Simulated assay, not measured.
Amino acid sequence: MGIGETAYTRRSGVSELALAVEASRRALEDAGLNPDDIDGLIRNDFDTVTHNDLAHALGITDITYWGLNGAGGSAAPGQIAQAVAAIESGQATTVLVYRALNGRSGSDRYGQTRRGLDGPNTVGGNGTYDEYFLPYGLAAAGQVYAMVAQRHMIEYGTTSAQLGSLATTIRKRAETNPRAQMGHRAMTLEDHQNSRTISQPLRLFDYCLETDGACAVVVTATDRARDGRRPPVLIRAVTMSTGAEPKGGVVFPSLFRDEYTTFPSKQAAQTLYSRAGLGPSDIDVAQFYDCFTITALVQLEDYGFCAKGEGGPFAASGAIDLGGQIPINTSGGHLSEGYIHGLNHVVEGVRQMRGESTGQVPNASTCLVTGGSPAPTSALILRRDQ
Rank of each mutant, 00 (worst) to 15 (best):
M353C: 12
R203P: 00
V361T: 14
S74Y: 05
I80C: 02
R203F: 05
M182W: 10
P280D: 01
Q91A: 15
D118E: 13
G106F: 09
I42G: 06
R226W: 06
G124T: 07
D284G: 04
A100L: 02
L204M: 13
L382Y: 03
D282A: 05
I294R: 10
I38A: 04
A225V: 07
N344H: 13
D284Q: 00
T94H: 12
G342P: 08
L368N: 03
A27N: 12
L343P: 04
L166D: 10
A71K: 03
P231W: 00
G59A: 00
F256Q: 01
A286D: 02
P35Y: 10
S365R: 15
Q360A: 13
P376L: 02
F292T: 05
T158I: 08
R104Y: 14
E22T: 15
G59V: 02
Y156G: 01
D45E: 08
R171P: 14
K266W: 11
T330A: 03
G338D: 00
D53G: 03
L234G: 00
D227S: 13
G2P: 09
L101W: 02
T168V: 15
P313S: 06
P313A: 07
L138G: 06
Q200N: 15
L54P: 12
S274V: 01
I326S: 01
A269Q: 03
A269L: 02
T293Y: 10
I235V: 15
A141C: 00
R224C: 00
T64E: 14
D47T: 08
